[in-house]
Design a protein around this nucleic acid. Structure first.
Length: 206
DNA sequence: GCGACAG
DNA sequence: ATCTTGTCGC
């Protein structure tokens, strides 16, 4: 297991956060939307990217990328652990998504650079963060989440936190996530999560 | 110093 | 997130 240099990692997050775009810079109308998630099995990290038709909200195809997991999970540094499995799966897709939902926070992060944002900036892809539990920030009476005096996210429910990832406005992020909701759960990441767990048992040795 | 802390 | 079976409830 690698040990992160938290000092440098935090510096990188703060530095790269200057590149985040919080305006809509994705293809309209959206035709393809992706959902990415990572599961773990022994020494392996299994990244899955699922592509769905945006209008119909129906699955089209998916890709799997398995790699050895060497970075530990440390709160607020999740991206360093999951970015390669996620990026590997995304880059294997034959259909390029217009926007991607990531199972983590985007700008709802102490240094404004959660995993969803990190992935978006590194791959220069429009991303939205969809997490199941809070990390930081204050929720106002309307449900909006503020971090460092900036409105960057929205608490849709106690189990769903939406935030700007990269190249998308908060308003659009909320609208897009609502569009692909199925039983209060975003369908793209739900399918990616199911597939990633399914793949865990298809790994032969250890 | 103490507690909290995405997946 | 992972390690793990059955079981309670709508």
């Amino acid at each position: 297991m690698v040990r992160l240099n938290l000092k440098k990692a935090a510096y990188l997050q703060r530095k790269l956060s200057e590149l985040v775009i919080t305006k809509d810079m994705f293809n309209k109308p959206i035709k393809y939307i992706a959902g990415v998630d990572v599961a773990y099995r022994k020494k392996y990290a299994i990244g899955v990217a699922y592509i769905l038709d945006y209008d119909k909200v129906e699955p089209l195809t998916y890709s799997v990328y398995i790699v050895e997991s060497k970075v530990p999970y440390i709160p607020t540094y999740l991206a360093f652990r999951e970015i390669w499995p996620m990026a590997g799966a995304l880059l294997k897709l034959k259909i390029k998504p217009d926007i991607t939902l990531v199972d983590s926070h985007g700008l709802i992060h102490p240094r404004g650079f959660g995993a969803a944002t990190h992935l978006g900036v590194v791959l220069n892809l429009p991303t939205i963060g969809v997490a199941k539990s809070p990390l930081v920030g204050k929720v106002d009476k309307d449900g909006y989440i503020h971090v460092n005096n900036k409105r960057v996210g929205y608490k849709f429910s106690p189990k769903l936190y939406i935030s700007i990832g990269h190249r998308v406005s908060l308003e659009s992020a909320i609208e897009i996530v609502k569009h692909v909701l199925r039983n209060s759960i975003p369908e793209p990441t739900r399918l990616a999560h199911i597939k990633a767990n399914e793949m865990k048992y298809k790994i032969s040795m250890e």
